[in-house]
Amino acid sequence: MAIEHGAPQIPPMLRVMIQFESTGWFDTTGEEKTQHILPKLNEVLTGWKDNGSKLIGTLDRDILTAGHAGSAGYHAVFLYDVPDLQTVTNMTHSFRATGLDRYFRLEAVLGRPFFLLEKTD
C-alpha cells in the first residue's frame, strides 16, 4: 500500500551533508600541514559558525580506514542546518578562496530532516 503525500517541502533551514576528502594533503610535508594547511582549515571551519549555519554532527571514517578515500569518495562528513543555498555555496567557495581546494575536496548534498525520525512542524 502506497502512502499518499505531496511534494517534499523545502524547510526553513536546509539540511546539508558536506563530504570532505583529503586530496593533495597526502603530498605535503608535516611542516606544511602544521604551519600552513591546518591553521587555514581551522580558520575556515571556524568562520562557518558565523554564517548562520548550525553544526549538527560530524563523522570521520578514520577508525577503519587509512590513506586515500577510495570508492567512498570522502574521509569525513559534516552535517549542518544552513539558512539558504547561497550560504552553502559560500561554504564550498571558502575552500577555493583560501587555496584549501588544493588539499581538500568538498561536496555538498542538500536535503531535509527525515520525516520518520525528526518532526519538523
Rank of each mutant, 00 (worst) to 15 (best):
F114D: 11
I10K: 03
A7K: 15
S53T: 02
G47M: 04
A69G: 05
L41Y: 11
G73E: 09
T34H: 10
A72V: 06
L100T: 02
S94A: 15
K54S: 15
T46K: 13
F20I: 04
Q86M: 08
L100K: 01
A2I: 12
P11D: 11
S53P: 07
P12S: 10
L14W: 01
D101P: 02
R96K: 14
L117A: 13
T28S: 07
P12T: 10
A76Y: 08
W48E: 03
I10D: 14
H75P: 04
I56P: 03
F114I: 11
T29K: 09
H93K: 12
T89D: 13
P12Y: 09
T98H: 08
L79M: 15
V109N: 13
T89H: 08
N51Y: 01
Q35H: 12
V109E: 08
T87E: 00
W25K: 00
L38T: 08
A76R: 06
T120E: 05
G24P: 00
L14K: 04
D84L: 09
K40H: 03
L59F: 13
G67H: 11
L38M: 15
T89V: 03
L116E: 02
H93C: 12
D84P: 10
A97C: 10
G70N: 09
V16S: 01
P39Y: 07
T34P: 03
T23S: 05
G57R: 12
P11S: 06
F78D: 01
F104S: 01
L79E: 06
